[in-house]
Amino acid sequence: MPMPARPAFLFDSRLCTGCKACMIACKDKNDLDPGVRWRRVTECTGGEWTRTAEGYRQNVFSYYLSVSCNHCEDPICVQSCPTTAMHQDGNGIVSVDPKKCVGCKYCSWSCPYGAPQYSERLGRMTKCDFCRDEIEAGRPPVCVAACPSRALQWGDLEALRGKLGQPMAVAPLPPVSATRPALFVTPHRDARPVGSTAGLKANPEEV
């Protein structure tokens, strides 16, 4: 696919098994240290068990969300960066200029997705750049090309908007109004609406 004017992710939560091939493909391509996670897979799990006379009853549910930087239309990280290191280019790709970054972490605190990832080793912020080198060469980002379940796709923001309408989100993601992410989520059958606390981030240590 030719380089889109404005790349966007399309994530079908119905198909995601939480396998993390996307995350590791990203870590391998970008040689990311432990703790530096440009793409993170959240397990959202809820439901209760009750002991009854006839045995246990339950209404357990679980689904996964694979999220990187969403290269938002209102990138709050860019707005909160005091040095202009965090910037957005003409294609909407948000990235860090390593020469300007002082490692203050304001961007990562402000991003509701936790996308900017601080590297202890480099002493500065790092983040997903939508695999710019790959997509400029006409190939998908490596996380997309990695997904065994074909849950993760990508495309042009406007074209996807035309097909799917406005991006939408599910819990525990923030409302799309916060930063206007270039991320379309197809909800899992058990997805809870944004703001719901019925499900918990069940793997906090992994994201």
Partner: peptide, 22 residues
């Protein structure tokens, strides 16, 4: 991994899981 060419079912891409990627 195998991410070249068409991804037509039956000769689809044999994409490695996270372990192979590591």
């Amino acid at each position: 991994t195998d991410n070249l060419g068409a991804d037509d079912y039956g000769t689809h891409q044999i994409r490695a899981c996270l372990r192979g990627r590591a």
